[in-house]
Nucleic acid binder design. Structure first.
Lengths: 253, 253
DNA sequence: GAAATAGTGTCTATAAGACAATATTGA
DNA sequence: TCAATATTGTCTTATAGACACTATTTC
């Protein structure tokens, strides 16, 4: 194992400088790396899927992990997350990206103290143009196949994924975010299938339709109809309302 | 300004070790400090108040700031937050403490890159036994007096405080957390005043009472009555239900 | 007695949830 | 034809919100 030395060059400091740095001596705390990890969720083929990358490097080599990387010295956390999302999935305008939570247990990464700020992204199901900055595999994998709390993921990524999934499930209730899983235009049936997939429960189609269309700003009609599947269906775009009043009730279990 | 040198002692490394550390050379990213900042909220005299500390050290000296400190090398983030809370307010069993969000904009602290994990604590209004690890002033100050987004606070603490207040307001809707603002036992009127204070709106007393008592697990009756104020009032303890179904409706505006 | 608070009863509007029924298209 | 989906109509139940009223204590 290698050793890290952090040395403060504090010759020629004034008393004011010393006071200024009081409590900020780097020797007082070990080096810490700050990263962003992404929980990128999408809905494909009636399954809620997360973007995972198979690790090609030693710690946890071969296991699936969340995409992520270091926060650059001049980046905000949001910018670092947006950059990683663009690198991993290609830029998707309209994709939703929000901070999820921060994970910093000592020992969560065997190499050093790593504090990871997790972000949640909700993206439509598009053919994946992963550029693969490193040559590692990247796939959307159904979260249901990953077992309880994403067991089997590298590091503590199973827990991070579980929190991201729960956040997404909760936010569908009281925001219009479900539309960010869909390409425009979409039908009310498409939107209902997003809810059913993310929540894992069947919804009453007639009541769901009434609820969505009676919520101002949730979806906007395009005036066109799509004659695919059985029957025809009216087409909609995303609305502008972020908060739903009242919420879409989430059935128990 | 002093200079920080971080040197990796990488003589005698095997190829495996070098691969292990690939991408983790500390020279690849500047030193980062990780801290926890606390948004400690309480309700006193019909005002929502936050615990603030007047800075006694140069950057932003004399301005009000959130309590906080460094994350120790062997602490989890939660442990660091709990330690800081105990140091600043004295240990309060039953106090609610949850991670709020992480703030890491470059330049948010003029000394160095500081990534701060903010926590939200909801505590009852008790005589404050602040031990004051440093000799700085600490006070509960009404958030309404701090102006929009806590203008005037040091660093970006105004924004952090605003997010904490908004989180608290939102959580009163769908959790039983309002009870953590109260000492036990309490009356339904006490609980209603917590809602009215945090939300800043008057609530219908009769409907509120019905709502609270009809929500299983929100509060538990003690069987005793308190003959203070006008009339008598039944006394309750905190219930065990974390999630309210259905939520306590929050009036608009 | 007046004022303030606790507590009960009741009514209305709204929304959720369930069921029925029709229309349209693909197999 | 049948099966599947979209869409509309209607009914029941639960709940929010409003108002009226009583009881009890302090001033």
């Amino acid at each position: 194992m290698s050793t890290l030395l952090c040395v403060t060059v504090d010759n020629f400091l004034t008393d004011e400088d010393r006071a200024f740095l009081a409590g900020y001596d780097p020797r007082a705390f070990p080096p810490v790396a700050v990263t962003v990890d992404l929980v990128v969720l999408t809905v494909r083929e009636s399954e809620l899927c997360a973007l995972l990358i198979r690790r090609g490097e030693p710690p946890q080599r071969g296991r699936w992990a969340l995409p992520g990387g270091f926060v650059g010295p001049d980046e905000t956390l949001d910018e670092a997350a947006a950059r990683e999302l663009a690198e991993e999935t290609g830029i998707r305008p309209g994709a939703h990206l929000e901070q999820l939570a921060t994970f910093g247990d000592p020992g969560r990464d065997p190499r050093m103290r790593v504090v990871s700020v997790a972000y949640l992204a909700l993206v439509p199901d598009l053919p994946m143009p992963i550029a693969g900055t490193d040559a590692s595999e990247a796939h959307y994998r159904p979260v249901a196949e990953l077992g309880g709390n994403g067991a089997g993921l590298a590091f503590d990524h199973g827990r991070i994924l579980a929190e991201g999934v729960e956040r997404a499930r909760a936010k569908l209730e009281y925001t219009g975010l479900a539309t960010t899983f869909l390409d425009e235009p979409f039908t009310v049936g498409d939107l209902r299938r997003v809810y059913e997939t993310v929540w894992g429960v069947p919804l009453h189609a007639a009541n769901f339709r009434r609820k969505v269309l009676s919520t101002p700003g949730f979806v906007e009609p395009t005036g066109e109809k799509l004659a695919t599947g059985r029957g025809w269906a009216e087409l909609y775009r995303r609305g502008t309302t972020a908060h739903l009043h009242p919420a879409i009730p989430r059935p128990p279990s």
